[in-house]
Design a protein around this nucleic acid. Sequence first.
DNA 1: ATGGGTACCTGTCTGC
DNA 2: TGCAGACAGGTACCCA
Length: 276
Amino acid sequence: MPELPEVEVTRLSFCDRIHGARVTGVRLGKPLRWPLGVPPDALVTRTVGEAARRGKYLWLPLEEAGQPAGGLLMHLGMSGSLAFSDAPGEAGTHDHFDLVTTRGTLRLTDPRRFGAVVWSPSRDDGMAAKLLAGLGLEPFDAAFDGAHLHAALRRRRVAIKLALLAGDIVVGAGNIYACEALFAAGIDPRTRSDRISRPRSERLAAAVRDTLGRALALGGSTLRDFRDAHGMEGRFQAQAQVYGRAGEPCRVCGTTIRRVVQGQRATFFCPHCQRR
DNA sequence: ATGGGTACCTGTCTGC
DNA sequence: TGCAGACAGGTACCCA
C-alpha cells in the first residue's frame, strides 16, 4: 500500500501529537515480519521523540531521563496503516501493535502482516541499521539529480521500472508512483536502465520528485484502504495518468493504456506518450 | 555485483 | 452459493 507520500502523510499526521508523550504500555497482536526484539514492558516510561522517515520506514526515537534510549523502526508493508487516537477501542483481528502513551495510542493495523515494528538501540545500530543500509537517496535530497540518476542507471541492465522500484538508487517510489513518474518523463517502463540518456535521466529525476511531491501535497493515494493517522483519505488517485487504467484512453493522447507484468508486478503505461 | 525468482499473509474480486 | 484462481500500494532473502 504505502509508498513514500503515504508514509510521510502518516508521519506528519501523528508526529506532533505523540512527541513528548510517555509510554505507558505496549500491546502485541499477531506476529509481524520480525519480532519486536525487546520485551514490550521495557519500553514503558520511555518518552517518545520526533518521528522521522527514511524511505518508506518510520523511526520513532525513545528517550529515558533525557537520554536517547533506542527507538522503534516501523514499516507499513503492503496493507499497513497507523492510527493515533485517545480511545482506540478494542483491538481487532488486524490490529497487531499498540503503543499506549500519555497522549494517546498509536496503533498499527495490517491485514497482510508484511509490515514491521522492530526495536533498535539506535538508528545507526542493530536491526534499524541493517534494514536501512543500502537504501538509495531521498528523492527530495539535493544530491538526487539527473547526473546522479544517470550515473547509477549506466551500471544496470534491468528495466527502468524495476530500477526505480528497487529503492537502492532513489527511495520512495513504489508501484503507483514508479508508473506515474515514468509517464511524466515520457519513458517506456521496459527500457533498459543503461540506455537512458543523460537528458532523459534529468527529466526522470524531476518527474520522480514532482510526482512524489504532488502526491504528498494531496495526502497520498487511497486505492482501497489507506488512511493517515486521523483517518483521512488521500486524493492523488483521481489524478493517476496510467496506474490502474489499463484499457482506458490516455488522458493526453487517447491511446489505450497498456498493462504488462515486470518482476511479477503490474506496470501501466501509454505506448504512445512513453518511448524506449 | 547483478539479476531473477520466491517467500511472507489476508482480503477482494472475477469467472465458472 | 460455492469455490478456485488471480491480484493487491513491499522487500528481504536465496540462488544462478
